[in-house]
Design a protein around this nucleic acid. Sequence first.
DNA 1: CTAACTGCAAAGTTTTTGCAATTGC
DNA 2: GCAATTGCAAAAACTTTGCAGTTAG
Lengths: 125, 125
Amino acid sequence: MELNTHDQKKIKSSRQRDCILRILRSTKIHPTADWIYESARKDLPNISLGTVYRNLNLLRDEGKIKELCYGKGISRYDVPHISLRASSIEVEEMTGFRIHYHRLEFIGLCPDCINRSEIPWRSQL
Amino acid sequence: MELNTHDQKKIKSSRQRDCILRILRSTKIHPTADWIYESARKDLPNISLGTVYRNLNLLRDEGKIKELCYGKGISRYDVPHISLRASSIEVEEMTGFRIHYHRLEFIGLCPDCINRSEIPWRSQL
DNA sequence: CTAACTGCAAAGTTTTTGCAATTGC
DNA sequence: GCAATTGCAAAAACTTTGCAGTTAG
């Protein structure tokens, strides 16, 4: 068994995939596969749900879209803790606060500094 | 149709539920329902997958556990953006930075201030 | 006692996949 | 042309639910 980096098949365009991406880019909600399917059928009445799933997976693998996930499906379970994945709603439920906004910062090295092995932010701590 | 706050049934203990909670509290991974089921069968060979699901939902409703969620099940899709759910790894992939740590803040009203309708933090903006 | 809980199996929901036909390059 | 893509339908994967029997309080 060999790993061949040339195995990746080349992607052709298709009206179905274009339609799905257009739908995703023109909505503010985080639609489900089924919502996308119903939406796409207005343009392409014969599109199938299987095609929607195949294209969503393809677009995800390409990095063009992100797959989010809510409380259904293959779920994993954990005892409570505040993590990066905590949502404002979860924080509200935990604290009784009414959350208005949040701020998320990532601190690290830029690509140049990684190469120079500098740690410029450490002196600020 | 009336909403009766006394409708909530009272919870009895059960060996099955105790076992599930014990498993969750003694592992560092985020197990799937099926992993929990297989794990629980070592103690209770006759436990059923349905019981595992019922108890996980019950414990979630009680707030004793959190349901997490990875790339399967009822998924929702979105075009890329940095959101609360972005992980350090995702940020690294997007930016080329090497992330060392992050900071997450939630800003809002405490329970008392909600009642007094004060917005003390607004003057700081 | 009896309401909550259980195991089992069937049903429900969401996603993937096999296949023959179609389409983009 | 030929590989990528599609529609369709069947299968797979995951979760919920109905029911009759069991159990905790």
